[in-house]
Design a protein around this nucleic acid. Structure first.
Lengths: 207, 207
DNA sequence: GTCTATACTGAGATAGAC
DNA sequence: GTCTATCTCAGTATAGAC
């Protein structure tokens, strides 16, 4: 049956998001999907292959929206650099939109990120998005030299991943909507990115 | 023998940092330590108990240094709030110092963070440090209401964890010393934290 | 092409002898 | 304290039924 594949995906998505990737056995998944154990390996090759397709069907639409939004902003700017806040919003808004409509998937992404199961598949399908947004940010931040720019990018990624994937620091923050979170994050990140270059001439190499 | 425990800890630290927590079996560890499999369960109770003590012997000294440094800054300020940059430095400097002298441990912390194996033991031994630094930051940032303050804290934690635990975004950044990374991170975070309050009156609740 | 039944290897954990 | 033997359960591989 063609629906065997979907039954497996649905069961896996639910169980992974509830208990985490490592803690969910393939035998749990087949019990929920009412299929045979070997069907997973037939359709997906391995547990990791199953996870791969699970992530893909949620992440790909988000990345397409991100690029479409950036395309639109760049068209509006007509050759000039897109404003920093808009670049950040183009990256964050599609993700928060997904988080709003698929909260269980947001939880899953958080768990996967926490379990380090996300990097491999991300590397494979994130390249275009990554390149486009780095270019846009670079144009929006001409006051930084390349070294400082790359580090600030690193800092930004940390904040974004933590905000999109981890439960809020304080319990009361959980009541704030994704729109609010995004607005507060954009305010924070844009101020950090716009800060004057630290301009350290030091070229010391880590021992 | 009393040294059985240490042999296990040393072997585990090396293997965990090389291959990760999940990918390292207890049988790998005992092969490296030249001890019996059951000795791990006798001394540590479980694989997670072993990890717990492994983290502890590295994290506790860092947290003690952090608090000592904050104590010193607060004494110098004599009742006034400690300057934001100094609070951030008191938190980051001991960790980067550890990273400088125990790069393999830094790699291990990164792997553990990526594998989500770090939260449980951290919750248990991080309380005092957390409380002290939140208080100091709150006093350094009187312009933020509680809600925005908590979110910015969340953003800061994401950047810090990512910077301390993940390999740099760009290959060439790996050559920058821990002092440079810390200075750049402090500049970025303090600018973000000092940004005017976004002051959103919206009280929408996430659906 | 799809799916099932079953077996294989290696994991963490444990009981009890020494 | 330490070690042997064993248990249960994981992910994986394969042979063969439809």
């Amino acid at each position: 049956m063609i629906e065997t594949k979907d039954k497996i995906l649905d069961s896996a998505e639910r169980l992974f998001s509830e208990a985490g990737y490592a803690a969910t056995s393939l035998r749990h998944i087949i019990a929920g999907a009412q299929v045979n154990l070997a069907a997973i390996h037939y359709h997906f090759g391995s547990k990791e292959g199953l996870l791969d397709q699970l992530i893909l069907r949620r992440v790909d639409p988000v990345n397409r929206q991100r690029i479409a939004m950036l395309d639109r902003f760049e068209a509006e700017a007509g050759g000039a650099p897109v404003e920093l806040e808009k670049v950040l919003e183009a990256f964050l808004a599609p993700a928060t939109e997904m988080a709003k409509h698929h909260p269980e998937m947001s939880r899953l992404m958080g768990r996967l990120h926490a379990e380090g199961q996300v990097t491999a598949v991300f590397q494979r399908h994130f390249e275009t998005t990554k390149r486009r947004f780095i270019e846009a940010l670079r144009r929006a931040l001409p006051h930084l030299d390349e070294r400082e720019f790359l580090w600030r990018l690193h800092f930004v990624i940390g904040s974004m991943a933590h905000t999109l994937c981890s439960p809020p620091f304080a319990a009361e923050s959980a009541r704030d909507s994704w729109q609010v979170r995004t607005a507060l994050l954009v305010a924070f990140l844009s101020a950090g990115l716009r800060a004057p270059a630290a301009a350290m001439k030091e070229v010391e190499v880590a021992k």
